[in-house]
Amino acid sequence: MAKTKDVQQEHFENDLLSFIKVKFIEPITINGLKPTIRQYVEITSIGKATIEKLIKSKGYDVPISTIRKICTYSKITLSVFFSMFEEYLKEKESKKKK
């Protein structure tokens, strides 16, 4: 029997991907330019396929090991990461209500 994601899970995954992309991937620059995938791999220690999923995918269920690597290269704790994510979700929700 094939697994199916519920709509809430899919929204959560897409929100997490968007948060990671906006707060951690897009701000990375090298001499003012957007890095190549290979440069992202070197900077973050996250594998090429995973970087591509973080940048281009929807519905990707980000492993905690990837979140840990994001925290490591960003020099933040997991608790800070998830606090930032909660704030991101609150901001998104408040924008929806306007």
Rank of each mutant, 00 (worst) to 15 (best):
L54C: 04
T44H: 02
T50F: 02
D61V: 04
V22P: 03
K3E: 10
D61T: 03
I55F: 00
E10Q: 04
I37Y: 14
S83N: 14
K92V: 07
I51H: 03
K69H: 06
P63T: 00
S79E: 15
I20Y: 09
V7R: 07
K96R: 14
V62H: 01
E93H: 07
N31C: 02
F82R: 10
S74W: 07
V80N: 11
F85H: 08
M84T: 07
M1Y: 05
K95Q: 09
I64C: 01
T50C: 05
K75E: 14
F82C: 13
M1S: 11
I46T: 11
Y40G: 01
I28D: 06
M1N: 01
R38V: 13
K69R: 15
S45P: 07
Q39M: 10
K48W: 06
K96M: 05
K95A: 05
K95P: 06
T44R: 03
K95C: 01
V80L: 13
K56V: 02
L54T: 01
I25W: 02
I43Y: 06
I76D: 09
G32Y: 04
T4S: 01
G59C: 00
S65R: 10
C71W: 05
V41L: 06
K3S: 03
F12I: 11
Y88R: 03
K97G: 00
I76M: 12
T36N: 02
D15K: 08
Y73F: 15
A49T: 15
K56N: 15
K53S: 11
V41M: 12
P35C: 08
K96A: 05
E87G: 12
E87T: 13
K95R: 10
T44G: 05
I30P: 12
K95H: 08
Y88Q: 05
T36I: 09
K3C: 01
F19V: 12
S18N: 14
Y40S: 04
I25C: 00
P27Y: 12
E93C: 02
I30R: 12
E93T: 09
K90H: 09
T77I: 14
K21D: 11
F81Q: 12
